[in-house]
């Protein structure tokens, strides 16, 4: 199914086409890992929504990306519980090892690092999502063991 049809298909779950906007953005983001102007335009055409509207919505939500991302997206929580349990140390470690600042991408395009607000894993803090995989109880010892599995 081509992407336009896939998007239009999503709108069947909603009483109007616009309802499918958020899921449609996920669909196009899956292709390249981020939302280029072209990707936004595709959504705009598929759902017959003004381009500016699509952009306004897409930029409101933190999980839509507007710059190219690395092959793997490290989404590390540093909110209060994770902070108390040492998340900031992990940020430093990751930065040191991969030369990766929060918000940045490694030169080889392997990782992007994004600081998250609470991801609902405070009982097993610190925690992170790598792409859509959930990892918790992170420590200085196990963090790289986990990350190194992502090529």
């Amino acid at each position: 199914m081509d992407i336009m049809d896939e998007i239009r298909d999503l709108s069947r779950k909603y009483p109007d086409r616009r309802g499918a906007l958020l899921p449609a953005l996920y669909v196009v983001q899956k292709e390249a890992g981020w939302l280029s102007q072209e990707a936004l335009d595709t959504v705009s055409r598929a759902l017959n929504l003004p381009q500016a509207t699509v952009k306004g919505v897409a930029t409101f939500y933190a999980m839509y990306k507007h710059r190219p991302m690395g092959r793997h997206l490290i989404q590390l929580c540093t909110n209060v519980a994770c902070m108390i349990m040492g998340a900031e140390r992990l940020v430093d470690l990751i930065s040191g090892r991969y030369g990766l600042e929060p918000g940045g991408t490694t030169d080889d395009g392997r990782f992007s690092l994004v600081i998250m607000e609470c991801i609902g894993a405070c009982d097993r803090a610190p925690a992170m999502l790598v792409d859509t995989d959930f990892h918790a109880d992170l420590t200085a010892d196990n963090i790289f063991e986990i990350l190194e599995k992502y090529e």
């Binding site: 500016a52 509207t53 952009k55 306004g56 919505v57 930029t59 409101f60 939500y61």
Partner: peptide
């Protein structure tokens, strides 16, 4: 015309 929008948050 729907040509502008607030972007970001």
């Amino acid at each position: 015309s729907y040509s502008i929008s607030v972007t970001g948050r």
